[in-house]
């Protein structure tokens, strides 16, 4: 019953006019992000229970000794049923963990759910620890982390070291999501070097690569007429690019992007500068999913084709979506991650 009971609970109207996963639902009683965004670290690495939703979202592009590409995801979502924190079972905070490992041929996924207030899941800012069950993302500070997760058919244990500063999207971390002004607080650490071991059904694989951690919280990040998004994080030869395209009911899009130089300087681009268009679709369990895209950011001379390492990177979780590693070719070369929601 988990899923059926949870969906309406977490996501009051997953399939209706209130945007993907209910993220367009009005959020009475909850705090809303305001400009200017002022952050307080380390505290802001921890949870913000007065906001309705929040996530610690890590993706990594990895390679083993043979040069085989892998993708890895570790995500902890927080959803509040009410804008406060309580002790014990009466806490209105709900936690959801998603973990995945993608290989060129397989996509391993698992999900965990937990109540707040009892110690089964949570986040502390100092020392930093985010956990649900036996999964954790933790370290003495935000720059040096250990990350573990396990599922019925896979597990991983990775170490992360930040090689650059935190970067802030939009207006210094105030990221606008629609023409109506919906917004979230949004910052990232895109400079992690990562190494460790994947445990897969065929055995253990030692891997290294780069990881990108997104931190985002809000109460109603989407407009009611937005049905889903396509989010790209690209690690290119001469910099990193984060761009997303929010799809609206009338067929139009709202886009936003951040260009990140190798030393961490950012440029935010408003609606329309970043373009992403599907090139070809894959049939994933009966759904038509765009797994090859043309992505452009003219201001930086970016005109690339991106395609999925494994087009079957479907997250069959209680809120299903597509999330997987991508390969970048064209004006720039590189790797990255693609997340697509609202295709159910």
């Amino acid at each position: 019953m988990n899923v059926r009971i949870l969906l309406p609970l977490l996501l009051p109207c997953a399939a209706s006019a209130q945007g993907f996963a209910g993220l367009g639902t009005a959020s009475e009683g909850f705090a809303t992000p305001e400009r200017p965004a002022i952050f307080d670290f380390e505290t802001d690495h921890g949870p913000h229970p007065d906001y309705r939703i929040e996530w610690w979202y890590l993706t990594a592009n990895l390679q083993d000794g043979d040069g085989t590409h892998y993708g890895l995801q570790w995500t902890l979502f927080r959803t509040a049923l009410a804008p406060d924190e309580g002790e014990g079972w009466s806490s209105p905070q709900i936690w959801m963990g998603h973990a995945a490992v993608t290989t060129p041929t397989h996509h391993y996924v698992t999900e965990r759910l937990a109540r707040g207030g009892i110690g089964q899941a949570g986040v502390t800012a100092q020392p930093f620890e985010a956990w649900i069950d036996d999964w954790q993302l933790a370290g003495s500070d935000f720059d040096t982390l250990n990350m573990t997760a396990s599922g019925p058919d896979f597990a991983y244990d990775m170490d992360l070291t930040a090689q650059g500063p935190l970067i802030f999207h939009g207006d210094a971390g105030y990221s606008v999501k629609s023409a109506d002004g919906q917004a979230s607080y949004y910052y990232s650490q895109p400079f992690y070097e990562i190494d460790g071991t994947l445990t897969l059904p065929d055995g253990e694989v030692d891997v290294t690569g780069n990881a990108w951690l997104d931190r985002e919280w809000s109460s109603q990040p989407l407009s009611e007429n937005q049905t889903g998004w396509d989010w790209f994080s690209l690690s290119l030869d001469d910099g990193k690019l984060m761009g997303f395209r929010l799809r609206q009911e009338n067929g139009s899009h709202y886009t936003s992007a951040t260009w990140i130089t190798p030393d961490g300087e950012t440029t935010a681009y408003p609606d329309g500068a970043f373009q992403a268009d599907p090139v070809s679709f894959s049939d994933v369990g009966g759904r038509q999913i765009p797994t090859q895209w043309n992505v452009t950011l003219d201001a930086r001379g970016v005109d690339v084709d991106v395609y999925a390492l494994n087009p079957k990177s479907w997250m069959a979780t209680s809120v299903p979506y597509w999330e997987g590693p991508i390969i970048v070719e064209g004006s720039h070369a590189g790797v990255g991650y693609l997340e697509m929601t609202g295709y159910e």
Binding site: M1, N2, V3, R4, I5, L6, L7, P8, L9, P12, L81, A82, G86, W89, S90, S91, P92, I94, L113, A114, R115
Partner: peptide, 27 residues
């Protein structure tokens, strides 16, 4: 029971119609 962790197939809390709210858990 804890609806978030109970194995699937266990008794429902009558929430198939989506009327389970914060009250069901906390209140």
């Amino acid at each position: 029971l804890d609806p978030l962790t109970s194995p699937s197939g266990l008794a429902t809390m009558g929430a198939d119609d989506g009327n389970l709210t914060i009250d069901a858990l906390a209140g």
